[in-house]
């Protein structure tokens, strides 16, 4: 039974730190607790756990505009975040976690603001038939998590520019996004603010658990090393780009200066994608090797400059 509420608001808009805080809260959630975490990201394409970043997102356009690519540890499709969007996260232990109840708290918060929201399917909350909130879920044996977006005055049209329109036919693995009709709350009340939405969520949560003790936690109270380690995890390209989803093989390759981490994606015996992660400063040579690897048929004769990498793969 829930007898303690913990409320925390993110102070910054850096997606990876915000994700780190969310994950930390999940990993440290105690029985009897309901955590509400409120956060927003600056210009981020936020893809689902098992999505292929290269298919979902025009990474070049996104990075050109200073946007972030982030990957959730929950499922579903790609969404766009900016400061005109508020994210809410409910975390509770398995026995207290109840999706219907959490949706109810969220929709009641919308009602308090004068919006008539309705649930659609498992993941979406609509206003007049258009989606303004997408939700996703994670379950482990200990704690469970339900998070969602609320579009307030987001420039979600920008999203379409970052959606990949690759003509290349990729028969890649991964969960595909589904397009839906989207709207901002500001379409229905032009003066609505993110702060109002956050306050309303808090009010609605407290109203649901009248007898529960409430603690408000600030970012500073969280252990810095843990948050920093998690921030590194969520910002690591290998995680955001999802090499485990996208590439078929990963292996280490020792060269004269150290160790590189090589990822290859195959179509038959032909390497379709190659990525080398190494801390060498000689990025030019790394890029050249990636270029040479791409398109190589490993069963045919191989350029001598990548011979050693192919051998390392063969020895794997």
């Amino acid at each position: 039974m829930i007898n303690r509420l913990k409320v925390i608001e993110a102070e910054g808009f850096y997606p990876y730190k915000n994700q780190a805080i969310e994950r930390y809260l999940l990993d440290t959630c105690e029985d009897g607790e309901m955590i509400l975490y409120l956060w927003a990201n600056d210009k981020t394409v936020f893809i689902g756990k098992n999505q292929n970043a290269f298919i979902e997102c025009n990474l070049a356009a996104l990075s050109r505009d200073g946007g972030f690519l982030a990957r959730r540890f929950t499922g579903g499709g790609a969404v766009y975040h900016d400061k005109g969007n508020v994210n809410f996260t409910f975390i509770a232990s398995k026995q207290d976690y109840d999706i219907a109840n959490q949706f109810d708290i969220m929709m009641n918060a919308m009602r308090l603001l004068g919006f008539n929201a309705s649930l659609s399917g498992r993941n979406d909350v609509l206003i007049e038939g258009k989606k303004f909130s997408g939700n996703a879920f994670y379950k482990s044996e200990d704690a469970c998590l339900h998070h969602g977006t609320i579009l307030i005055n987001s420039d979600y049209a920008a999203f379409s520019e970052y959606l990949n329109v690759s003509k290349v036919k990729l028969n890649a693995k991964g969960v595909k996004s589904v397009a839906s009709r989207v709207t901002n709350l500001s379409e229905y009340r032009s003066d609505i603010t993110a702060q109002e939405v956050k306050e309303s969520l808090k009010t609605s949560l407290k109203a649901r658990y009248k007898d529960a003790a409430i603690t408000t936690v600030t970012e500073e109270e969280l252990p810095r090393p843990a948050i920093e380690a998690l921030t590194r995890h969520f910002s690591d390209e290998r995680y955001t780009r999802g090499d485990n989803v996208f590439y078929d093989v990963a292996f280490e390759y020792r060269y004269e200066w150290g160790v590189a981490d090589v990822r290859l994606g195959f179509n038959g015996s032909v390497i379709e994608k190659a990525k080398i992660y190494s801390d060498t400063l000689d990025t030019e040579s790394v890029e050249l090797k990636e270029k040479l690897l791409t398109g190589t048929d490993i069963l045919k004769s191989v350029d001598p400059r990548i011979q050693d990498i192919i051998e390392a793969y063969g020895a794997k």
């Binding site: 756990k49 499922g75 996703a136 879920f137 994670y138 379950k139 482990s140 044996e141 969960v175």
Partner: peptide, 16 residues
Amino acid sequence: DVLCDVESVKAVSDLY
């Protein structure tokens, strides 16, 4: 221990 995970239309879930 967590062995692997699955994504369903409802959630991402760990398997033990």
